[in-house]
Simulated assay, not measured.
Amino acid sequence: MLPTSPPSRLTVLVSDARALCGVEAFARRLAETAGDRAMTHVLGWNLPALGTALNDRDVLVINLPVVAWKKRLAEPVAAAATARLAGRAVVLVLHEWADLDWKRRATYAPLVPLATEILFSSPEVARQFAGSPVARLATCRRGIVPIPPNLVRPALLPPTALASRLAGERAKGRLVLGHFGSIYPKKQSAIVLEVAARLKARGQPVFVAFIGSFVKGIDQVEEDFRARVAALGLEDDVLVTGYVETDAEIFRLFEEVDVFVYAFAEGLTARRGSVLACAMSGRPVVVNAPAEADAFAHHPTYRRLIDEGRLRLVPTDADADALTDAIMAAAAAPAPAVASGVDITAAWNDVLASVDAVLARPAKS
């Protein structure tokens, strides 16, 4: 048997943000999963400190998009160049591409030729990147990373005022619909509102909990949302929690949800960590199916959830009526005797394995 090289040692670039987005949480959890093989380095202009951090490491890992990108236009490029000059590999993990504003993609273009490996958050993002002009400058050492939930369910879930509010709505006989994550156009929150209106029209009292906040910097997102709530007569039937700080608070809210619902513009994709987080609650999740048959070929956790029926897929182009039918069926179905959880350790080990796999490929691949 041929000897195998030891796993690569990683320096994972992170920000100093306190309110974590999904990409930032992913970066930090990746380093945690790698254990002694990894360390984090805070993004900034302290290049001598980065050089020191790379002394006993083989690879710099950069997740894109970065937090507060307008203030950090050149810092990721400088970090990647420093790593390459030190003879280290540079792995880019692209969580989004075509969905990003073109100006944001332009700021990441200089990073592409510096990368020795590129990982994508889903097959769709990989295809988006491959179809862009900048892909001609990129390495062929590419792969797909199975994005896991970024949350951890604590053993104890303390009571909160928001959870008590939802419990009160359930006590009134209302069906509580849940929608977790940031609110922005491609998540099609307007369709969730349409579903709520149809449930009311069918005689089903309903209350919708949007567990998250509106994305800043996109024109009129909150204004359009509020206007649609009013137009549908749902002013007393919708709650937007705003940013929820701790995992314990999030999962306590999840316990008061009857059914989660999503309707993505492109259909479900493997990078939707919010859907996986909801599935961790044991509650049914109604979501429109992926547009591509191979969407979850790389993602063991998603495949298991679908096989178990915990993700209730409707057609990719399902309208509000089809979603409403699926929600009513899910609400009427008996709850499982034991709510199956997501094996978080296994899911994150799958992530680390995907990073190691692309690093282990022969240079000519």
Rank of each mutant, 00 (worst) to 15 (best):
G22D: 01
P149K: 08
A34G: 12
A34M: 10
P133E: 04
V61M: 04
D317T: 14
L323Q: 04
A201R: 15
A318L: 13
F251P: 00
T269D: 08
A332K: 14
A293K: 12
E169H: 10
P110S: 07
D219V: 13
S213D: 14
V351H: 00
A289F: 07
S274D: 02
S5M: 12
A196S: 12
V259L: 02
S213V: 04
P110G: 06
P300C: 06
V90S: 01
R141A: 03
V338H: 10
D307Y: 04
V176L: 04
P300D: 03
V221I: 13
K71H: 14
A335T: 08
I218M: 10
A227W: 07
R105Y: 11
V77Y: 12
S15M: 07
L162D: 02
Y184A: 06
R303T: 12
L100K: 08
A279S: 08
N63C: 13
F120P: 07
A270R: 10
P76Y: 07
R105S: 10
I218T: 15
A277S: 14
I327Y: 05
V67C: 13
P113C: 03
T246N: 00
E292M: 08
M280N: 01
F251S: 00
Q220W: 13
G51C: 13
L64C: 11
G178V: 00
V257Y: 03
E24W: 07
D247I: 00
L305P: 05
A318F: 11
A289H: 12
A115G: 05
F251K: 01
H299W: 10
A79S: 14
D237A: 13
P3E: 09
A89R: 08
A81N: 04
T82Q: 08
A353R: 11
A265S: 10
A167W: 01
A197D: 07
